[in-house]
Design a protein around this nucleic acid. Structure first.
Lengths: 201, 201
DNA sequence: GGTTTACACTAGCGCTTGCTTGGTTGATCT
DNA sequence: AGATCAACCAAGCAAGCGCTAGTGTAAACC
């Protein structure tokens, strides 16, 4: 019978599903396409997942969990200044786009295809991630690193970062490190990062 | 027979379609749902549009055309300083989200469901709009209003602005004017806008 | 006053969809 | 050696899909 466990097989299938969801979109991806990509028949798919919705939820959960743990780890292992923490968060965020790009694209584009219960479960995860951001931005505001409305600044920054999935090319010359620097230089021009940049160019 | 004209009836139907596409997503919206919303039977729909794809293209074209003409008008009727032009663009962008929100959400989320020919036609329109942005940002860079990499700054700004469709509440206290001010204050802290803000708060 | 045109209807074809059912296989455990 | 179990398959159902064909009708035009 079908299970809700976390078998390694299921994780691999989730990874493949994420790729197809990005290529085709959730609604256009049929269970037959998913099965073929996985090397099994469409019926066998429902041994691993209750229904198609559950595959989508699994993809998004996987990606968000990873982003959350990477961000937490980055915050723990960086210097304690507001600037260092802001930079660590931006860099962590961009690095997950390298390693988990598919899952994040799905989370951004197909969120609304989740049913009500998956959505409420996953929105807690997402809230936890965004809370990390708001806290780091609060610290930056208090330190006078940046200024402006707390709510608006965090939304603008999240927007700029999330939008990167649209244009960022991991094969290109720009590394996540560079993007993080440039973003912080843009919103906090009085930092070391900004000065290093503006004299270099 | 079905036509490709621009009858007022077709425009009204396009507006209704945009709303449904936002609520349900393009793939989940059936021609029967569209017809019901329009008060006709599903077969009658194909008198106005060749196929379902064409409805999507019509929605996106309408929204992009409006954004483009509003932006051009804003640039023509504003002061000639780099700061004024940047502000005019940001404000125009946010105001189209008020008046044409549905169409823009569709353009952002359902772009990939366009077939090849619609996509190539519409991407010219979108490029024209983004070119306006790049030019204004170039001017701001030259004027020393902001600093940083031309490519990255424009992507970050577009990201922050486009992301607003996710959280912006037109009924709330913040007006497009305010958002535009705040965004510019964030990326160009030495402007009048920034000083007015930071002393006021 | 006859023809055309715009817009709508009814009915349904051919196909695809997500998912179910009942059964087979090979490895693991006792 | 027998039992258990995860993993898979073949076959197909019921529902829904985009779209077409053929027809009706009221207004507009010549």
């Amino acid at each position: 019978m079908n299970v809700v466990n976390e078998s390694p097989r299921r994780k691999e299938l989730t990874r493949l599903a994420a790729q197809l969801f990005v290529q085709e979109g959730f609604d256009r991806t049929t269970v037959r396409m998913l099965a073929q990509e996985m090397g099994i028949k469409s019926g066998s798919l429902f041994h691993h997942f209750r229904d198609k919705q559950e595959i989508l939820a699994a993809v998004i959960e996987e990606g968000t969990q990873n982003a959350l743990s990477i961000a937490r780890q980055a915050l723990e292992s960086c210097e304690d200044s507001a600037e260092a923490r802001l930079h660590a968060m931006a860099r962590a965020h961009l690095e997950t786009l390298l390693t988990d790009r598919n899952a994040h694209v799905v989370a951004l584009y197909e969120w609304r295809r989740l049913d009500a219960e998956s959505r409420s479960h996953l929105s807690h995860l997402r809230d936890a991630y965004e809370a990390l951001w708001e806290r780091v931005i609060d610290e930056a505001l208090e330190a006078g690193l940046i200024r402006g409305d707390r709510f608006l600044v965090s939304r603008f920054v999240m927007g700029a970062l999330n939008w990167t999935v649209r244009w960022y090319d991991p094969e290109g010359p720009r590394k996540p490190e560079d993007l993080a620097h440039e973003l912080i230089a843009m919103i906090a021009p009085s930092t070391h990062a900004a000065q290093a940049r503006s004299t270099k160019v």
